[in-house]
Computed example of a mutant assay.
Amino acid sequence: MRLIKPTAAVIALLSGLLMSTLAQAHPKLLSSSPAEGAAGAPPDKIELHFSENLVTQFSGAKLLMTEMAGMAHDPMPIKAKVSGGSDPKTMLITPVAPLTAGTYKVEWRAVSSDTHPITGNVTFKVK
């Protein structure tokens, strides 16, 4: 019986396919509402839409006010409820009180079935 040795090209192709499959398992932020860099009225809730279903017990977010008109300050935490949406790929951040004028940042952590945490942030302004 003769064994066939895989060529370097075949090994590279199989490795690439394996790595692309693993990379696709990480959740990616697809969109947010308000969108990154948006300016407008205070939102009742902030929605983050990901590419993968989230494991809600390991995913979460913090809402911070990073700038207030005419006032320099360190980021201030804003009380908000974080929950999953009706779509398992959505995270909802609902401020406890209406947001006042200023710049806000949502620092998020998303975990999908691969259990690898991915982090990021979204910044928006309230007029």
Rank of each mutant, 00 (worst) to 15 (best):
residue 56 T to D: 06
residue 46 I to E: 03
residue 57 Q to F: 15
residue 28 K to V: 01
residue 106 V to P: 01
residue 51 S to D: 12
residue 2 R to A: 10
residue 84 G to S: 09
residue 65 M to N: 13
residue 89 K to A: 13
residue 9 A to R: 06
residue 72 A to L: 14
residue 5 K to R: 15
residue 112 S to F: 12
residue 76 M to P: 02
residue 26 H to N: 10
residue 82 V to H: 05
residue 12 A to T: 11
residue 106 V to H: 05
residue 58 F to A: 02
residue 23 A to N: 11
residue 122 V to K: 03
residue 59 S to N: 09
residue 84 G to W: 06
residue 12 A to C: 08
residue 77 P to K: 10
residue 44 D to S: 13
residue 56 T to Q: 14
residue 124 F to N: 00
residue 53 N to S: 14
residue 66 T to P: 04
residue 125 K to G: 00
residue 116 H to R: 12
residue 9 A to N: 04
residue 43 P to H: 09
residue 36 E to D: 10
residue 97 A to D: 11
residue 14 L to P: 01
residue 118 I to T: 15
residue 66 T to K: 06
residue 76 M to Y: 11
residue 50 F to T: 01
residue 28 K to G: 07
residue 120 G to Y: 08
residue 126 V to A: 10
residue 88 P to V: 04
residue 102 G to M: 10
residue 51 S to P: 05
residue 45 K to A: 15
residue 81 K to L: 15
residue 3 L to S: 08
residue 125 K to P: 01
residue 86 S to Q: 12
residue 61 A to Y: 06
residue 123 T to E: 09
residue 89 K to C: 07
residue 65 M to A: 14
residue 95 P to G: 00
residue 37 G to K: 06
residue 11 I to P: 00
residue 60 G to K: 10
residue 28 K to L: 14
residue 83 S to D: 13
residue 29 L to A: 05
residue 23 A to Q: 14
residue 48 L to P: 02
residue 93 I to R: 03
residue 108 W to N: 00
residue 76 M to I: 14
residue 50 F to M: 04
residue 113 S to Q: 11
residue 52 E to Q: 15
residue 2 R to E: 09
residue 46 I to W: 02
residue 52 E to H: 15
residue 99 L to I: 03
residue 59 S to W: 03
residue 59 S to V: 03
residue 7 T to P: 00
residue 81 K to C: 05
residue 104 Y to M: 00
residue 35 A to V: 10
residue 7 T to E: 12
residue 89 K to G: 00
residue 1 M to P: 08
residue 27 P to A: 01
residue 22 L to I: 14
residue 45 K to D: 07
residue 119 T to I: 11
residue 59 S to H: 09
residue 76 M to S: 12
residue 68 M to Q: 13
residue 21 T to G: 04
residue 23 A to F: 15
residue 86 S to N: 12
residue 33 S to R: 08
residue 42 P to C: 07
residue 41 A to Y: 11
residue 20 S to R: 03
residue 24 Q to T: 02
residue 115 T to M: 15
residue 31 S to E: 14
residue 123 T to G: 05
residue 83 S to N: 02
residue 123 T to N: 05
residue 18 L to D: 03
residue 2 R to V: 13
residue 43 P to F: 09
residue 22 L to V: 11
residue 29 L to M: 01
residue 41 A to F: 12
residue 88 P to K: 00
residue 66 T to W: 05
residue 102 G to Y: 04
residue 117 P to C: 06
residue 20 S to V: 11
residue 68 M to N: 04
residue 53 N to M: 13
residue 25 A to W: 08
residue 4 I to P: 04
residue 8 A to G: 12
residue 19 M to R: 10
residue 41 A to P: 00
residue 80 A to F: 10
residue 69 A to Q: 07
residue 91 M to R: 01
residue 14 L to K: 08
residue 12 A to D: 10
residue 68 M to W: 13
residue 115 T to K: 12
